[in-house]
Design a binder for these strands. Sequence first.
DNA 1: TCTGGGGTCCTAGGACCC
DNA 2: TCTGGGGTCCTAGGACCC
Length: 471
Amino acid sequence: MKVILHIDFNSYFATVEQQANPRLRGKPVGVTGGDRLKRTVLGAASVEAKRFGVKTGMQIWEARKLCPQIILVPGDSDKYLETTKRFLGILKDYTPYLEVFSIDECFLELYKTRGPASQVSRRASSLAFARCGYAPGPPPGCHPSFCDAEQIALYIKQRIKAEIGEWITCSIGISYNKLMAKLAGSLQKPDGLVVIANQEETMKVLDQIALDEICGIGPRIKKRLNNLGIFDFKTLRKAPLEALLASFKSYGQTLYNMARGIDHSPLIPFYEKGEVKSIGHRHTIDHDTNQEAEIKQILLKLSEMVAARLRAKNLVGKTIHLWYREAFNLASHSSSGNVFFGDGMQNTIHYTHDGLEIFQAAWKIFHLIWPARNATACETGGPARNATACKAGGNKNKIRMVGLSVSSLKPVLPQNLSLLPETAKQEKIIKTLDKVNDKFGEFTLQRGILLDSTVIRRKPNPFLSERRFKL
DNA sequence: TCTGGGGTCCTAGGACCC
DNA sequence: TCTGGGGTCCTAGGACCC
């Protein structure tokens, strides 16, 4: 039987801030996305803030309403990544089978006996026992693996507190697959430790929780299940597989399994995870706009940010995806709930990591899909993507968010670099630009057209989900 | 005052090539 | 006049996660 530990740090960014700054300890703290307080949400809330009902993802004004004394701290991605590297270093002592799930979450598989790292795994496990002074040998009635795992989990918690900081706490779930380990970890917060050791315990837990408490059932799937008369796992378990397949296609099998606590997904250790599949940025403008010049500047900046990250990872990409969201219009959408209108489109060009080329592709797409532009295109007989937009005479709605991402990535090999003098010159310019910016900060050197731009923060987003860590 | 920003995976359908 | 089938690439759209 597999033994999986899921480790989830509680109120991660907030506790890291409290650890770093003693004056924040014991106080309600909210971590924000930077200096901006308008149109932004909390990236994390401390335990003390949560007591007031403040939650991660809440808007600033809402959090302030619930807890006027909340201390807002701008997020610092470097600090969080650094802390993550440190706790991963500790976890590696217990098994090489370590999957990094997000900046504050990971899975560990203990006692794996097959595969190339099994020797290391066994060594690591015995080392763990030695370190915590625990002699393997479970009390009667307890599955040996799980009892040992529980001891290891306790020891991991101790080490994190001792080596990283007493304010950094984590919840650990232990079970026989990833799905149930993650669920176990979510049952007790903060600083929890829950074991789901067998089928019987799985059923007991599943029958007590809501459908969307399990990883993989979000609001949409939940609603569709509700429409089928399924409101809990007990009922879901009674649903025939055929019915679920008919409604959810292949995902029906996943739901069928979930209701029984079955999950065959393998743990993918960090050293087997591939490179990233896409790199993107999006930006919500602090005021709504339909000014092309303004949108152009934002897109240029996003393009340069994406390109710089591609170059930093030594990647090129060829699929450019641009999308936007229109301003929220309460008057016209209030009855239909939270509806945001927007559009997006992707286009494949040649492999590149040049911000200007990425921008040019994105700008072309933008002109094809933005209804206001479509209206002009209709009038002038130019290319219009959306006939409805033409008929409606264009859309007067303003834009609140634009996003840009590059996918279809591949590593840059020396032979891929063009030998054309113009391209070589461009490459040289870009390299110099990167060097200066690496040393003196993002956008120290930038394209002239960006000089007026103050629209996007200089620092990268602290909530950026870096799923790759160098260990 | 009115939901941020970073990702992943999956499916379906069309175009195109051999 | 007119078409089989496999493979691959591309795009759109939906859903989920932290």
